[in-house]
């Protein structure tokens, strides 16, 4: 048993129970439905800005782009625009591919030995699974978040309705199943299983890796439970969330079970946790020096920003100091 994921699992279960008991037993709807969500949002905004500005203040003295292609060189050498961008447009292209398609993860490969042919041979194999899980997970999460705008906007904008229609196109059951919800939960489970089952990944995984995954699994699971199995009064839920969005918070009459507050508490925790955790990669990816710097070290002079002014004494100045003496000694001078 690995303590890292056990602690994370216990933490998530206890936090869920805390919210459940807080509402079902102690009747703290206001705390879990209004106060904590607002605090979480403030913590997120302040923490996020702080992290980004902190990174912005960090000097990057050298160009350190990771390159896997030919940098711009002589005219007859073919330049790889995306793998070794030379200018801003190339960088934008590379960043867009990175952020929208996870390109560097796509290049994921596995090293191993094979005994084929009677002798041991090293091989490098392209492995697509992590990229596949990751991209499905992220896009399912995005769709789920955008779909949830139906609780935070009145009238509901057209793009939310359209997205929900496409997402629910399977028309399974009533209320209809959303593909994004199933994919989100499934992929989060796979990403968790990956960390538990693969020895090498397990070895480098810490509680901070398991906790957000388990928290997201908790969010997806409570959401799906509320939609399909332990239903809540959706109109009352929207009344609560609209109260939050319009700064008139109130706990509405109506049948909102404690499960809803568990969902809300998990989301608040996740949102407040982002600036202090690896989840900050949502902002950090934009500030990755290995991705966002053009590879132009040979064309442009980059000066280390923390360089102090160095006192120099050039040969011209030296000659000015000693010209007469040099002439007397018969040494050649550049300036008469």
């Amino acid at each position: 048993m690995n303590a890292a994921y056990l602690y994370s699992l216990i933490a998530v279960v206890l936090l869920g129970l805390l919210a459940y008991a807080g509402v079902a037993v102690a009747g703290l709807e206001g705390l879990f439905g209004i106060f904590i969500p607002y605090v979480a949002l403030i913590v997120f905004v302040a923490g996020f800005a702080n992290r980004i500005i902190g990174w912005g203040k960090t000097p990057v003295p050298f160009r350190i782009p990771t390159t896997s292609g030919q940098q711009k060189s002589l005219p007859w050498v073919k330049h790889d625009k995306f793998d070794s961008p030379y200018n801003t447009i190339g960088v934008i292209g590379r960043m867009a591919l990175e952020i929208l398609l996870f390109r560097s993860l796509f290049k994921n490969s596995r090293v191993g030995f094979s005994d084929a042919g009677g002798y041991q041979k090293i091989y490098y194999k392209w492995v697509v699974w992590l990229w596949l899980f990751a991209i499905l997970f992220h896009y399912a999460f995005l769709v789920t978040i955008v779909r949830h705008l139906r609780f935070f906007a009145e009238p509901v904008p057209f793009f939310v309705e359209m997205l929900a229609k496409v997402d629910g196109m399977m028309q399974v059951g009533a209320p209809g199943m959303y593909l994004s919800g199933v994919v989100l939960l499934g992929m989060a489970m796979l990403l968790l299983v990956r960390r538990i089952v693969l020895p090498k990944v397990k070895y480098i995984s810490m509680a901070a890796d398991y906790f957000p995954l388990l928290l997201i699994i908790g969010i997806a699971a409570t959401g799906i439970l509320m939609r399909h199995f332990a239903k809540v009064d959706v109109a009352a839920v929207k009344e609560l969330t609209m109260g939050l969005a319009t700064f008139r918070p109130a706990i509405p009459e109506g049948d909102i079970s404690a499960l809803f507050y568990v969902h809300m508490f998990f989301v608040s925790l996740l949102v407040a946790y982002i600036p202090f955790s690896k989840l900050m990669h949502m902002g950090g990816v934009f500030l990755s020096p290995t991705r966002n710097l053009p590879n132009n070290s040979r064309a442009v002079r980059h000066v280390n920003p923390w360089n102090y002014p160095v006192k120099t004494h050039t040969y011209e100045e030296y000659e000015d100091d000693f010209r007469e003496k040099m002439k007397e000694a018969g040494l050649p001078v550049e300036k008469e």
Partner: peptide
């Protein structure tokens, strides 16, 4: 990013909308 994040706040402009 923060303007996009604040979508619910500026979209509704504080207009209350209780359950029908």
């Amino acid at each position: 990013f923060f303007v996009i994040l604040a979508f619910p706040f500026w979209y509704n402009r504080g207009a209350s909308s209780p359950a029908p």
